[in-house]
Design a binder for these strands. Structure first.
Lengths: 219, 219
DNA sequence: TAGATTGTTAATCGATTAACAATC
DNA sequence: TAGATTGTTAATCGATTAACAATC
């Protein structure tokens, strides 16, 4: 098992980054079932990709397998956990306590994985003061101060579109390392802040497209 | 303005399908601001892609612009609306009335766009009978019969992972054209059913990766 | 007309797949 | 050892970008 240092590579394709969590999910499943080893061929079949792709993807980060044997499931799972940064703790603040914000605040798996919502903000007087997922909702006016007092790694935006950019600016100024954006907006953030979007509406439109063009080919 | 017929093309890349809703969102915004025309250069700058990409993408569906002038914003918006199938009505059923399911059922923009949740199902006795987003939650046992009585275009899965495949099977058997899956599972569906996943947990892991590897390059 | 911008073809770039030597 | 499977290089495939003739 050899790990690769960053210097070895020019950059990790976004497509690979998107596949790593899928590998991780399947390996966790196998690990829970106490499967000890798996070959790239077997894993590929389970996931629905090519075995080449799995080996190529993993090779960007090191050599985790053994010729003639395959991969030790739990060892590979832990390596990917480390590559994804899931072995580190990440405090988060959530801005926007609407239905989606509530759903995220109540999602138990985040805490289990070390992703911890330590504060929730909203602008509505009826919502401020409520307890959601064990956390009291604060006035969004206090967001800036809160970040000064206690910096967090990740800011979650579940606000309406029209205020999302303003919140992103406050979060960036407050020193978050990443923004997880659920608002249907193209946010501009400084270079040192990473942005990950979940655009639910766009996903539904993509589904609609696929249905309408089902007869025709698409890739 | 010329539309292209399906026969002209070999298939639409998934990457293009994912960009169409983004174009649509920006054009809607411009249209709301009563902007009349826009060039591919201006639109590209606004969205953060190349002008080549916009023209190349659109050319897969037809010729919607005018040399020397650009595109009529509202005309192009309506064309993309049509391409995405947003001009047609789509009835949906939602299975799994947890926090995420509630959030979706309460999202007003779906109905506005013709996506209509006509039934909600859950397995928990405490939840069955509740009214969510104006719709009464039914026992998931009744899902199969319900689909027989009233077919729907789209099935939404917001259940836990372990029952997601079973629900997908019932939905597919019940004749849905597409499944919008929020469960962290790799679902297998028949060829004539299209699948669109929203994997929130995987998105968070991707964000985590980007943060951890921020110093290093990735694309 | 002159200038601007499209639609499309050609060139480039990057990602996926195939193949195979290395080796457990 | 013989068989299996990795890690990696080479070949293929596809998507993005550049360039430009057509034309509004």
């Amino acid at each position: 098992m050899t790990r690769r240092t960053p210097k070895d590579r020019e950059g990790i394709p976004l497509a690979v980054i998107k596949r790593l969590p899928i590998y991780y999910r399947h390996l966790t499943e196998l690990s829970d079932k106490e499967v000890e080893r798996i070959s790239s061929r077997e894993l590929a079949e389970k996931i629905g990709v090519t075995q080449s792709q799995i080996r190529q993807d993993l090779s960007l980060f090191g050599s985790f397998g053994q010729q003639g044997y395959g991969y030790r499931v739990d060892e590979l799972r832990i390596e990917i956990e480390r590559i994804l940064g899931l072995d580190r703790r990440a405090d988060m603040v959530l801005v926007g306590a609407g239905h989606l914000g509530r759903a995220l605040a109540n999602y138990p798996n985040f805490k289990k994985r070390g992703f911890n919502i330590i504060a929730i903000f909203d602008c509505s007087p009826e919502v401020i003061g409520q307890i959601i997922g064990g956390v009291r909702v604060q006035d969004v006016q206090e967001l800036e101060d809160s970040l000064l007092r206690r910096p967090v790694k990740i800011g979650i935006i579940t606000t309406p579109e029209d205020v999302a950019q303003g919140i992103a600016d406050v979060l960036a100024k407050g020193g978050v390392e990443g923004i997880w954006n659920f608002a249907p907006a193209t946010l501009r953030v400084p270079d040192d802040v990473v942005l990950e979007n979940v655009h639910v509406g766009e996903s539904l439109m993509a589904l609609s497209f696929k249905i309408e063009h089902k007869g025709e080919l698409y890739k």
